[in-house]
Computed example of a mutant assay.
Amino acid sequence: MEMQAVARRWLADQGVIQVRDGWVSDKKPGLLLTANQVAHSWAGDVFAEDLDAADQLRLTFGLLDLLGDYWVTCEIRFANEGAEGALPVDVLWDGYRERLEADRDVEAVTYSLWVDWFEDHTTSATAFAEVLGNDIDRVVVERSEDLLRRARRVLECSGPVRWTVKEPTYRTAVRVPALHSALFQGILASFHDVYGDLEPAAALALLDQLDLPANTQHLAELRHVLAAGHKNHYRSPGAWDEAVRACS
């Protein structure tokens, strides 16, 4: 919340303030702006501020908390790949981990992981390790609600991560029943996502270890396509429809 307050003050210095139904800028006080419009117009400017890279990044995370808009994460990614060089990795991934553990909506953060960091195979291994893989043993031992919340969120959007990268984490997470539903969603996304990746036999073996309600939606169909050796919905057109027919 502290960085959110700092971000609010920074926006006010830019002439942007929050009102009941949105945001207004002193340049066009009669025009009501959405959070997305504010993010597009001002989030990138943080990286031009006379601050060191770590403080720029912390301020941008404060904007993310304040606006809740995915575009702020895009500006972080742009800055990380910019001419000034990569952002401080400790601040970058601490920022993601902190928000993944927060008891509030973090759709912008999980969407960013999924479509930007995890779908890009030049970054997915590092990103997955930083937000979960390096900590999965700690999750298993401590099982605090914050850690479990982070683990669930990462597992659910981990479909595009290469199977060889995520399988060890998946196998460890099986030991925690509270993560079984999220593991199922991760395996399901690994099959259905355009960039999803899995090995059918290994995924089926994991699936069979999950304690899930018998009426779990898509469980029978997923088991069917994996048993048939299919790796991905888009590589096996018709396989899912066949599974639906077989399991109906």
Rank of each mutant, 00 (worst) to 15 (best):
W10P: 03
A202N: 10
S158Q: 09
F47E: 04
S41Y: 08
E49V: 00
L59D: 06
L59H: 05
S112G: 01
G62R: 01
E81C: 00
R104C: 14
A205Q: 13
D137T: 14
V165C: 00
P168L: 02
A243C: 09
L32A: 11
L204W: 04
A79T: 06
W42H: 09
V16K: 11
Q14K: 15
R58T: 02
A182M: 05
D45C: 07
H230W: 13
F191V: 08
I17M: 14
A108L: 08
A7K: 04
L204R: 07
A86Y: 06
L31C: 12
L188W: 14
H192N: 12
G186N: 11
E119Q: 05
L92P: 04
G62S: 00
P200K: 06
R138S: 13
V24D: 01
A83I: 03
H224L: 07
L51A: 03
E156N: 01
E130P: 06
D146T: 13
D21A: 14
L207R: 09
T110F: 03
A239H: 03
N215C: 09
E145S: 14
R171C: 08
A53R: 14
D50G: 08
P237G: 06
G229W: 03
V24R: 13
R153F: 04
V194F: 07
E156Q: 13
S248P: 07
E145N: 11
A178M: 02
L204N: 03
A214S: 12
R223V: 07
R97P: 08
A43T: 00
T123R: 02
D65T: 02
E199W: 04
I187R: 00
E81N: 05
V91Q: 09
V225H: 10
L63N: 07
I76H: 04
A53Q: 10
L226W: 05
A125N: 07
V225I: 08
F128C: 02
L87A: 03
W10K: 01
W71G: 11
A189K: 12
V225S: 05
F184L: 07
G133L: 01
P237Q: 06
R171V: 09
A246K: 07
D52Q: 03
S248C: 12
